[in-house]
Simulated assay, not measured.
Amino acid sequence: MRRNYRDIRYDQYEDILVEKKDQVLTITLNQPDAMNAFSSAMHHAMSRIWDDVQDDAEVSVIVLTGAGKAFSAGGNVVAMQRKIDDPDWWDATTVPEAKRIVFRMLECDKPIIARVNGHAAGLGATIALLCDIVVMADHAKIGDPHVNAGFPAADGGALMWPQLIGYARAREYLLTGDLMTAAEAHRIGLVNHVVPAAELDERVDGLARRLAGGASKSIQWTKQIINLPLRQLAHSTMDLALSLETQANRTKDHQEAVHAFSQKRKPVFTGD
């Protein structure tokens, strides 16, 4: 049963900002000093807020963006070390929340626009690509360097990248972890629009207003149809993906990557 939208409280969430205006809800990842890397609180918020968005009768369109210079740098190294030290905490929080982020974003009927104001990496790239329309500032880069952290691209990257740019290109970028420029991301069809940073707000606002003023049920039903194959694919792959990521969380290579990042050096992987 759908809740009364007046009972929805966005202020319950930490490390994100939420603003609602003229049927458009803007969610801002709000850890700018850490390039909006995912804290535990932010990860939890992103796993839960989509149910509220879906039930909010005052919202027709969502804009997802980052505070400061980055969209999101992805994983938070401090949180990574905690998950290594406490695997039970990983099992109890990270795995179910990661599944919820992917499924709830794909299940949300309302169009989501990613306003990629700066670099989007790892989980940051994944949540951008789970959005329906991606508008990227021309100075930003995007990529999924999970393998460089001793992790598989299991949080949705291996799901979304091949569907957007094909298996050949997706394999190369996910297996190397390389970032690409906004221009390259647009050229290969990974993102919809690339604009100068000064024009980002105008382009995103224009798209949001157009969608908010459209035939909302038709737009939502069209999104349901488009996303159905993605949802089916997610259901068939995410359990295995997160099982493999759980195994990777216990490897020496992942611990080495976390140590190397903290020590500001290049990791030395052994395959263990």
Rank of each mutant, 00 (worst) to 15 (best):
R3P: 01
R3G: 02
R6D: 02
D7R: 11
I8P: 04
Y10N: 05
Q12Y: 15
Q23K: 14
L25K: 10
T26N: 00
I27F: 04
M35S: 12
N36W: 10
N36D: 04
A37C: 09
S39A: 08
H43Y: 07
H44P: 03
D52Y: 12
D52V: 02
E58D: 15
E58R: 09
S60L: 02
I62Q: 08
V63S: 09
T65I: 06
G66K: 01
G66E: 06
G68D: 05
A70N: 03
G74R: 10
N76I: 03
N76C: 03
V77R: 06
V78C: 12
Q81W: 12
P87I: 11
D91G: 08
A92I: 05
T94H: 13
T94M: 14
F103G: 04
R104A: 01
R104W: 02
L106D: 03
E107Y: 07
D109C: 14
P111Q: 05
I113D: 00
A121N: 10
L123D: 13
A125M: 04
D144Y: 11
N148C: 04
F151A: 07
A154F: 03
L164T: 07
L164I: 08
L174V: 10
L179E: 09
L179H: 13
M180T: 12
R187Y: 06
G189W: 05
H193S: 08
H193G: 01
V194N: 06
A197P: 03
E202F: 15
D205Q: 11
G206N: 14
R210S: 15
L211T: 01
S216H: 14
S216Q: 12
Q220S: 01
I225C: 09
S236K: 03
T237V: 15
M238N: 13
D239H: 14
S243M: 08
T246W: 13
T246L: 02
N249V: 15
R250T: 10
D253Y: 00
S262A: 14
T270R: 14
